[in-house]
């Protein structure tokens, strides 16, 4: 019981933790690509990272709906994780079109 609910606290931040890691990796890859001249490889690398970040978030967001009266935290977690998915889709979308190094 205790472990299960504590797991809920982790789930509450899981989605956005993934978002944060993806943010750091993408920002770093953008800077490295410009500094070390990745050229034509630069954008594909960023897009691959983008898609890699979305996969676990999609998985988290589509978990079965929690039920029971004790489902307050799991429900909040589910919404937070969906918010993280939305944030990832939108915030990182510019890797597909924005100027990389200018």
């Amino acid at each position: 019981m205790s472990q299960g609910t504590r797991h809920g606290l982790v789930r509450l931040v899981a989605g956005f933790a993934i978002w944060s890691i993806a943010f750091i990796v993408l920002y770093a890859a953008q800077a490295l690509g410009c500094a070390y001249g990745w050229g034509a490889w630069h954008r594909p690398v960023l897009i691959v990272i983008y898609l890699f970040a979305l996969a676990p978030l999609i998985w988290l967001s589509t978990r079965p709906r929690p039920d029971g009266t004790d489902a307050i935290l799991p429900t909040a977690a589910r919404w937070a994780n969906r918010a993280a998915l939305l944030a990832s889709v939108l915030v990182f979308l510019p890797v597909t079109f924005a100027s990389l190094c200018a």
Binding site: L86, L90, P94, F97, A98, S99, A102
Partner: peptide
């Protein structure tokens, strides 16, 4: 808010691209 923000940010990014000293 979501449609407003998506539309606005998208427009601003496209405008930003056009204004870059390319």
């Amino acid at each position: 808010p979501i449609p407003v923000l998506v539309l606005l940010t998208g427009t601003a990014l496209v405008l930003g691209e056009q204004l870059l000293p390319r």
